[in-house]
Design a protein around this nucleic acid. Sequence first.
DNA 1: ATATAAACGAGACGGTACGTCGGGTCTTTTT
DNA 2: AAAAAGACCCGACGTACCGTCTCGTTTATAT
Lengths: 208, 208, 208, 208
Amino acid sequence: MARKPSRSSIGSLRSPHTHKAIIISAIETLKECGYSGLSIEAVARRAGASKPTIYRWWGNKAALIAEVYESESEQIRKEPDKGSFKENLNFLLLNLWKVWRETICGEAFRCVIAEAQLDPSTLPKLKDEFMERRRELPRKLVENAIQQGELPKDTSRELLLDMIFGFCWYRLLTEQLEVEADINEFTTLLLNGVLRPTSAAVQGAAEV
Amino acid sequence: MARKPSRSSIGSLRSPHTHKAIIISAIETLKECGYSGLSIEAVARRAGASKPTIYRWWGNKAALIAEVYESESEQIRKEPDKGSFKENLNFLLLNLWKVWRETICGEAFRCVIAEAQLDPSTLPKLKDEFMERRRELPRKLVENAIQQGELPKDTSRELLLDMIFGFCWYRLLTEQLEVEADINEFTTLLLNGVLRPTSAAVQGAAEV
Amino acid sequence: MARKPSRSSIGSLRSPHTHKAIIISAIETLKECGYSGLSIEAVARRAGASKPTIYRWWGNKAALIAEVYESESEQIRKEPDKGSFKENLNFLLLNLWKVWRETICGEAFRCVIAEAQLDPSTLPKLKDEFMERRRELPRKLVENAIQQGELPKDTSRELLLDMIFGFCWYRLLTEQLEVEADINEFTTLLLNGVLRPTSAAVQGAAEV
Amino acid sequence: MARKPSRSSIGSLRSPHTHKAIIISAIETLKECGYSGLSIEAVARRAGASKPTIYRWWGNKAALIAEVYESESEQIRKEPDKGSFKENLNFLLLNLWKVWRETICGEAFRCVIAEAQLDPSTLPKLKDEFMERRRELPRKLVENAIQQGELPKDTSRELLLDMIFGFCWYRLLTEQLEVEADINEFTTLLLNGVLRPTSAAVQGAAEV
DNA sequence: ATATAAACGAGACGGTACGTCGGGTCTTTTT
DNA sequence: AAAAAGACCCGACGTACCGTCTCGTTTATAT
């Protein structure tokens, strides 16, 4: 007979129904009206909730959208194990681009980035929590590759991640996520460098 | 109702004074109040201009900020001629980061990107005009390097540019433009690839 | 050899074409867009004229509409000669209501009254020029009736006119000009007074 | 033991303070700036309220001014009981003109009429609510006079009211409310008719 | 002929206000 | 005591007109 964890205070509990309704409302509003139509007011209206309720639990739009992203992006968190670092990275990015394209996550991520530009106090929070969580999986991939001698021991891990995210962000923010072949071309260039003849790159592409 | 054939006459010319005042006002408002404080209303107020005048010439905030960026970023357009592609690229990026850090340009660029996310119709215009103009100089650098055999003939020019801009955008949008050494590390990685031992990469950098 | 009256100055003459085009534009704008849509801007636009031209010749909206009224209300100025004062007044008012209902004049008159409320300096001008001109004909009717002994010599002419115009304005401003029988009922009451049994009034109606 | 009527919804109540501040602001703005200066913006500014709050409760300028009129015109609603219909009517109109002249009500009433000309949808609302309420008291006067045999049984009640209001509106709209003697002259004419010699009319008034 | 002056179109401009949307905060009721 | 709902102030949105001004073209006098 499981007991609810005791509370220190009386009063209504946070309504799970309302919580869910707000997240769903945010998703649908974003789908139908885009970022510019995604106001707290609109979300509240559609959720049948009040604005103060949203502000109590999320504080600002960025936090709300961040939670939307988390809740919708579970499938991205699958850890690949394809054999090589390059194949794993390819798999990860293909998956990421696909989710960004086909779910609301792409739009949501763009919102999060844009929101962070608006409010200076939001940026560090986003960088240290939201973004950091996204970096974990690829960082693990890099780490594994280094452990197994696939990458040099002195690889600049964070710089490498910045390059990977940088490329993806750029494509997301300029709406260029369609051509999946670009991913392999990117990883090839990343791994082999520009100086090496790209004949190798073409080989790499053939492998995938 | 019959109208006489209209006469060919013009009206008043655009006031250069007002034009300038609006640009300056936008710069100063951005400096003092940040992106979130940069409303058309505030710009008009400070410029001693009227909102309709701003909307007559710019249409939306993105267009205004884009012009601010253009007008303030002249020094970035210096074409470097340092000898090698890597040195040239290093010079270019150092310069870019410096201007982004020290002038209003960094903030302005972030605004332009954020604005483009807000309004779907703004993005293509920005991509094809504003962003394209920024790609010209680095593209020329790449082209020259290929001509002189420094880079392989089949280098994916646009992908390379995407990687360069991606990295810079990422650092700009997450406020990480301080460490200039990162630039050389980045170009080294870009040129040599991750697979090559970074010690060699550092040597490569030293050689230059 | 007829000579044109000499001008005190040189330069182009006022364009009759433009003048006419503006009046016509005002009429059509009023018809299509109503009083609230009757802006100087809209009139100029439709006339293919410029705002300064309108302001040069009319000064304000009231003056323009007043001229519209003058130009469209010629048929009201027919002086009736039906025999009795009552018949003449009935004829006059029937005609007035009909023109107000069927042409743009009713709307124009309402605009003139409303405009006069907006601008304190417009009211006296309107009262002394525009309104005064409208009072001439009914005043003449009253005068004639007095001359011929139909009305008492000490009739308060201006008060009588105020009552007549008052009734018509009230009905115009509240959009109640449809029932023509009201006119005869009104004149009967006006002539005989409330105290007299209205059986006489019904007779009076029968006479017409 | 009176109980407050239960509310159908939760949330803050309408702030009486804000409500009052807006009405007062409207009155003072009208006093100082006249009808042309009476913008919703100005009222909000002076009241320390926001435009949306005004629009929430009033919808348009006419509705706001109408409420101003209601709140300021309480003393007009005193029902006179002077003995005769003529004396009652004289009292009523004297009082009305006085209030129109000495308070903001005259100006407010003119605004209401003018506003109704601007917006076609406002007119019927005003006619059926605002104006109708003003007609109640004089209608009662007429009714009483008929009951007591002072006026004929078949008196056209509404036409009579139209004549009374027509005269008053005309004088209000043309700023001619100063001469109080005009009121008695008007009621005399109204009761006795134009045809009866005015000397007799004055006698008639005296008889009553 | 050639100045000169006025009328005019076009339209830029500073203003003011419009009516609406959204951001956050506060008050009141419900659970 | 927390949740929920509505009112509220505030600021900005993008637009419409206002009335004035400049600009260059056209047209009618006056030299």
